[in-house]
Write a protein that binds this DNA or RNA. Structure first.
Length: 418
RNA sequence: GUGGAUGUAGUUCAAUGGCAGAGCACCGGAUUGUGGUUCCGGGCGUUGUGGGUUCGACUCCCAUCAUCCACCCCA
């Protein structure tokens, strides 16, 4: 039987693992500099957590969740997103007791049963942050600034920030009603998808790609006319903070987050070179979520980004990421005495963190040096019969070809790059 | 879930329905004390899988799986 990897999943192979480690490490550093602490939650939760928080009508819940029941018939789901589990943990562990403002970040695999495509997988890796405990617009800008700092630290310049306000629950209800009123007379002229959108999520009508549906868009009511004074003020304040932080953005009224829990600020980071799956991060405010999950009425804001798309974007900008290291030193040993002499030295060098390799299966000098070369080693350490007897070593620089003779002590203090 | 393209060696790609090939990579060798360049040698691979048409299928047809692209959705 030949086993194959499940559809929509991928292995992170050794050739790429250092890239993944690198971007994760940069994210951890940036998050820490903003005062965020890491939280790790299980990859599965009660299915109901996602059904209630994301919304029964959302695509994620309706058709993309991996559900299963355990041996006792309890209903679980592989997490399709990270915010609900973090909020669940926040409420369950009373993290709100530790001061008013809670800053959390997380990273790990998420799961959605979706048709795979470039930049879209069934198991994919996200990083994200949640700021819980304040509705102050400064924090909306702060989480955005965190993401922008992260991208900048990686050297990315092309992603674009788009921002919108979906208003509070009341504004959203008013706006949905206005949209339905506007589209109602044209309902049978809309595409079948839009007819569903009309029922489920009217604001999705605004970014339909079917030309006949697009035609109605220009006279459709605007989100901004239906924001109440405090929502409008909140949005303006967020924009002002972004201006002060010198973060560029475009206001895009069509930004609609897929999950039901979002209120007010919604934003997305878009990298145009990535094709159809061009959103590398997205987030927004969720002032009703915490109460909905059973906590006290507490506002929050956060975002999540996808590592796969981030890596694609880095590739598009030709940004070099760390490769796996090459050996600092490759041993070329001839004869038992040389091996006796060398093995303790190898052990000491490795103890110092220096990458040393040796291949006892290669018989001749030539073959051993060839092996050193194919491993891209920086130096070869040659010990033959003469050296074993005289207790000296020959260190050969494999890029220049120069050799020098050293003692064991000199080798151990040689400035190898660890 | 819908539509389209693609699937040949580790990899990138060839092969008017008529013997499945090449570059790169890989392994071995050119007198076990000096690598990279060079030279020589090394390939039967379930042509993604299963059916069908045909004297004969990598090639045509159907199904299936996978990848990619678009829709959808989103990270």
């Amino acid at each position: 039987m030949n086993y194959k990897i499940p559809r929509g999943t991928f292995d992170i192979l050794p050739a790429d693992s250092s890239k993944w480690q690198y971007v994760q490490q940069v994210f951890r550093k940036v998050a820490a500099s903003f005062g965020y602490r890491e939280i790790t939650t299980p990859i599965f939760e009660m299915a109901e957590l996602f059904e209630r928080s994301s919304g029964e009508s959302s695509d994620v819940v309706q058709k993309e969740m991996y559900r299963f029941t355990d041996q006792k018939g309890r209903s679980f789901a592989l997490r399709p997103e990270g915010t609900a589990p973090v909020v669940r943990s926040y409420v369950e562990n009373h993290l709100e007791m530790q001061g008013g403002r809670t800053r959390l970040y997380y990273m790990g695999p998420m799961f959605r049963y979706d048709r795979p495509q470039a930049g879209r997988y069934r198991q994919f890796y996200q990083y994200g942050v949640e700021f819980i405990g304040s509705n102050h617009p400064y924090y909306d800008a702060e989480v955005i600034a965190l993401e922008m700092t992260f991208l900048k630290a990686l050297g990315l310049t092309r992603p674009r920030l788009e921002i919108n306000s979906v208003g509070c629950a009341e504004c959203a209800r008013d706006y949905d009603k206005a949209l339905r009123d506007y589209y109602a007379p044209h309902l049978n002229e809309l595409c079948p998808d839009c007819q569903k959108r009309y029922e489920l999520k009217p604001r999705r009508l605004l970014d339909c790609k079917v030309p006949s549906c697009k035609a109605f868009r220009k006279d459709a009511p605007s989100q901004f006319d239906y924001l109440d004074a405090s929502c409008r003020e909140h949005f303006d304040a967020v924009c002002r903070y972004l201006d002060q932080m010198k973060i560029n953005y475009q206001i895009n009224p069509a930004i609609v987050r897929g999950l039901d829990y979002y209120t007010n600020t919604a934003f997305e980071l878009i990298c145009d070179e990535l094709g159809a799956q061009n959103s590398i991060a997205g987030g927004g405010r969720y002032n009703a979520l915490i109460a909905q999950v059973g906590g006290k009425d507490t506002p929050g804001i956060g975002f999540a980004g996808g590592f796969e798309r981030l890596l694609l974007a880095l590739e598009k900008e030709n940004i070099q990421l760390p490769q796996n290291p090459n050996p600092a030193l490759f041993m070329v040993l001839m004869g038992e005495e040389a091996v006796d002499f060398a093995l303790p030295l190898i052990a000491e060098l490795r103890q110092k963190g220096i990458y040393v390799d040796y291949n006892p299966e290669k018989g001749s000098f030539k073959a051993q040096l060839k092996a050193a070369d194919s491993m891209n080693a920086r130096y070869a350490l040659i010990i033959g019969e003469h050296e074993a007897i005289s207790r000296t070593l020959v260190l050969k620089d494999l890029s220049s070809g120069e050799q020098q003779s050293l003692s064991a002590d000199e080798l151990l203090s040689f400035p190898f790059e660890a």
